[in-house]
Amino acid sequence: MADYYEIDFLDVETDSSGDAITVRYEVGGETLVHVVDGGYQVTGPAICSHIKKHYGTTYVDHVVVTHCDRDHTGGLATVLEEMDVGILWMLRPWEYAAELLPRFATYTSVDRLRARLKGIYSKLVELEEIANRKGILILDPFQGATIGAFTVMAPSRARYLDLIVASENTPESVEEAAATPADRMRMLARAAMKKAAQIVAALWGDEMFSIEETSAENEMSVVQFARLSNHRILLTGDAGRAALTEAADYAPMVGLVLPGLDKIQIPHHGSRRNVSTEILDRWLGPRLRSKPAAGGETFSAIVSSAKADPNHPRNSVKRAFIHRGGAVFETESRSIRSYGGAAPNRDGWGLMTPADYPNSQES
Rank of each mutant, 00 (worst) to 15 (best):
D309R: 14
G44W: 09
P358Y: 10
K263E: 12
L117T: 08
E82M: 12
D69G: 00
A308D: 15
S210C: 08
C48H: 04
I136L: 07
F142W: 06
C48S: 11
V257C: 08
I87S: 07
G144Q: 07
N359H: 14
L284Q: 04
M208T: 12
E6Q: 15
I47A: 09
F9V: 05
G237D: 00
V317G: 01
V275Y: 01
G348P: 15
F9S: 02
E362C: 04
D162W: 02
G18D: 11
A343T: 13
P171S: 05
L244D: 02
R70Y: 13
A239T: 02
P171D: 10
T298D: 10
G240F: 01
D347H: 14
A149Y: 05
L188A: 05
G237W: 00
W349F: 12
G74W: 10
K123C: 03
R272L: 09
P141L: 03
P267W: 01
D111F: 03
K52Y: 10
Y4D: 05
T236P: 03
V317K: 06
A179P: 00
R319L: 04
G285F: 09
T331D: 06
A293N: 14
Q143C: 06
Y96F: 14
E217G: 00
S333G: 04
L32E: 15
P292F: 09
P141K: 10
T106E: 12
I211D: 15
Y59H: 15
F142N: 01
D8H: 12
L280G: 02
F142G: 01
T66F: 00
P102C: 07
T43Y: 06
D309Q: 13
D61Y: 07
V174E: 08
